[in-house]
Amino acid sequence: MGLLAPSVSVDAVMLEARAAALGKRSIKTSAKLEGITLAIRCTDLTTLEGKDSEGRVRSLCAKALRPRPGWPNVPSVAAVCVYPNLVSVAKDALRGSSVAVASVATAFPSGLSNIEVKLADTAAAIASGADEIDMVIDRGAFLAGREQAVFDEIVQVKHLCGNVHLKVILETGELGTYDNIRRASDLALEAGADFIKTSTGKVGTNATPPTALVMCEALRDFARRTGERRGLKVAGGVRTTKDALAYLVIVKETLGDGWLDPKYFRIGASSLLDDLLMQLEKEQTGHYAGSDYIPKD
């Protein structure tokens, strides 16, 4: 593999201090309004539950297209993210729109299957019309030091994807240290990931501000080294407008304004959109609407 030789080390104490300092940015009035709209545009509206059905995916797609019917200034989200067997339903519901369909793949969420199954999983999602693939890395292999195996899997999935956008989920909550998160980020970028993504949303610890910060640092160094801009997706546990704005701040101040675009930044979330809409209405009208004014699905 064309892997960079030494690992980049990360100091946990100072990393967390920096993330906490960025979390104290005060985002008010026009900035808040712009941030909320941007966060909506960057959302991958997600449903990844065993009980997902065609009907649920269709209503999610309707919401993805027009998050707030009657409010024409509210943009569509970036994508809808579903399991592979529901891709065709989402594709149909979103036909002709700007909203992409993302599919999880490669034995999501554990990634514990053989490579043939993972590739077949990916191929099926692409055949059903997926515009984007959210794959998972094999954390067992990574933690056991078999980095080459992890790298090769990403390369193979990327090869299969071709022009289909590939997001590589590191499952940072299982990697244990920021050093490992940085290493896995570098490895995924080197192997061809279009995006690096924090989490599946299926383990105890999902996206956190320090995790996003260390991944931004990897993206920034990659861009500096290669001249190529790759993206970040934070996922899992991002529920409030405040959380979303905090991630926008981290991206803005670490990577720069060029990354504040759905092409390079996504938030994977399900309930976040409701809070964004509620806060948007509050910013525009000066008062909070009850949560019952926001459609749930």
Binding site: S26, S30, A31, E34, G35, L248, D257
Partner: peptide, 10 residues
């Protein structure tokens, strides 16, 4: 183009 400029927060 400037994106997401922080508004004054005095």
């Amino acid at each position: 183009m400037a994106v997401f400029e922080y508004a004054p927060a005095p």
